Simulated assay, not measured.
Amino acid sequence: MKAAKIVAWIGLLAMTAGLVNGFVNGEFLVDGGALLENPWGIMALIDLYVGFSLFSIWIVYREKAMWKIIIWVVPLMIFGFLIGSIYVLKALYESKGDWSVVFHGLNRGVNDGEG
């Protein structure tokens, strides 16, 4: 559990530093336009949003309330794995060391019959 928290914290810090660097030193529309002109830039975006979508499935599974799902999934699609790192940290800290809670959430049993 400690290693997972360390990795999530490193991810959060790296994403924060990268976003700050991008906003301070880059031009979002210009740089984004260049990315979309490159076939590998488009592939990177496809890869990124497939990852966001798959990660969102886990959020939808863990959270029961629609408002909580929206609060996590919408920012994930905008801010990326900065939000994903925060969500993983949330899951790890609320689990109190129980991996079943990390993966399934506080309000779910391991075998709750949903699928």
Rank of each mutant, 00 (worst) to 15 (best):
4 A>M: 15
4 A>K: 07
97 G>N: 02
65 A>M: 11
39 P>H: 02
98 D>R: 05
20 V>K: 04
34 A>S: 10
29 L>R: 03
52 F>L: 11
18 G>K: 01
76 L>V: 09
77 M>T: 09
54 L>Y: 05
69 I>P: 00
4 A>C: 11
21 N>S: 12
75 P>V: 12
64 K>S: 12
80 G>R: 02
107 N>I: 00
94 E>A: 06
36 L>D: 01
19 L>E: 09
34 A>N: 13
103 F>C: 05
27 E>T: 14
74 V>A: 11
24 V>Q: 02
85 S>M: 02
96 K>W: 00
94 E>W: 05
59 I>W: 05
79 F>T: 08
16 T>D: 04
67 W>T: 14
54 L>I: 15
35 L>M: 14
94 E>C: 02
26 G>S: 05
93 Y>K: 08
42 I>A: 00
9 W>N: 11
92 L>D: 12
69 I>E: 05
53 S>I: 00
18 G>H: 09
113 G>F: 05
23 F>L: 14
63 E>V: 12
91 A>P: 09
68 K>C: 07
107 N>G: 08
30 V>H: 07
104 H>L: 06
107 N>A: 10
106 L>M: 14
48 L>D: 02
10 I>P: 03
86 I>G: 08
31 D>N: 15
19 L>I: 15
49 Y>T: 02
41 G>H: 11
33 G>F: 01
71 I>V: 13
60 V>W: 13
80 G>C: 01
40 W>F: 14
30 V>P: 00
107 N>K: 13
14 A>Y: 07
85 S>R: 03
80 G>V: 05
71 I>M: 14
26 G>A: 02
31 D>C: 09
49 Y>W: 08
5 K>A: 11
65 A>P: 01
115 G>P: 00
81 F>G: 11
83 I>T: 04
54 L>H: 02
17 A>I: 13
11 G>T: 09
66 M>N: 05
19 L>A: 04
2 K>A: 12
5 K>I: 14
47 D>H: 08
30 V>C: 00
110 V>K: 14
107 N>T: 13
80 G>Q: 06
95 S>Y: 09
89 L>V: 06
41 G>N: 10
93 Y>L: 11
114 E>W: 05
2 K>Y: 02
104 H>S: 10
104 H>Q: 12
71 I>W: 09
14 A>K: 00
26 G>E: 00
90 K>W: 13
87 Y>W: 07
58 W>I: 08
21 N>F: 14
28 F>G: 03
85 S>P: 02
47 D>W: 10
102 V>A: 00
67 W>Y: 12
2 K>D: 11
82 L>H: 04
111 N>W: 07
29 L>D: 10
43 M>N: 09
31 D>W: 07
106 L>A: 13
48 L>F: 10
15 M>T: 08
53 S>M: 12
41 G>D: 10
39 P>M: 08
69 I>A: 04
62 R>H: 04
93 Y>G: 01
82 L>C: 03
62 R>T: 13
55 F>R: 10
48 L>T: 14
84 G>W: 04
80 G>N: 03
